[in-house]
Amino acid sequence: MTTKRAFTLYFKVLFMSEQNQHGNAATSSRRTETLQEISDIKRIMERSSRFISLSGLSGIAAGLCALVGAYIANNILKDYYIKLDRGAAETYESFTVLEVKLVTLGAIVLLAALIFAFVFTWRRARQNHLPVWDLAARKLLWNVLFPLIAGGLFVLAMLQYDEWHFVAPACLAFYGLALVNGSKYTLSDVRYLGYSEILLGLVSTQFIHAGLYFWAIGFGVLHIIYGAIMWWKYERGAGSQ
């Protein structure tokens, strides 16, 4: 399948319907019909290849979850270091307990973020009378999940060898790659979020002891910023209809 050619065609159709908006008002009925046909083709191409119901509010909610999670993680770490200073926790067990606590926290945060993200996206799809679970949604999910699961296993393997230095950079970089990969099947803003996460992940390799802060910026702040941008661009005012 010549995907490249198909996409050229896709953009051609998009361009033609753009022209439609700038065209003059005096149109023959045949022309109106033709434009209608083109806009139908465009709508179907878009809907079948991209999941457009992704809500900006999903990003904001996921970002807030991440910030709360990072705050709790910070407190857990502080506790640990206070105990360490007192010489009360300098055992292998207490480090394992810390690891388990943090991984559990991470899993809870991920779950909460996914639930909120799903709820807002589901709500948006319902408002627009679009199915949540269609071909484009499946493609998006698969293309995001595959690199993400690879990244998750990679991070767990690092922890297995007590290599915690690169947990935050690896989380950010893999998540960014997953987003870039998935962005072909959803709103293009997601690609830029992906680039930002990858860059942040690479930068954080040079500030290894500030991992949690980078994690909070990447999963918290960036999600909130991009979520707000996407909400502003696509959803503002749409909810009141």
């Binding site: 198909a6 996409f7 896709y10 179907i44 191409m45 809907r47 079948s48 290849s49 269609d134 071909l135």
Partner: peptide
């Protein structure tokens, strides 16, 4: 329109979208 931008699509997906 659906088939030119998607490699392979099954019957149910076509039905749902159209």
């Amino acid at each position: 329109s659906i088939l030119v931008v998607n490699e392979q699509v099954n019957f149910n997906d076509l039905k749902q979208m159209l």
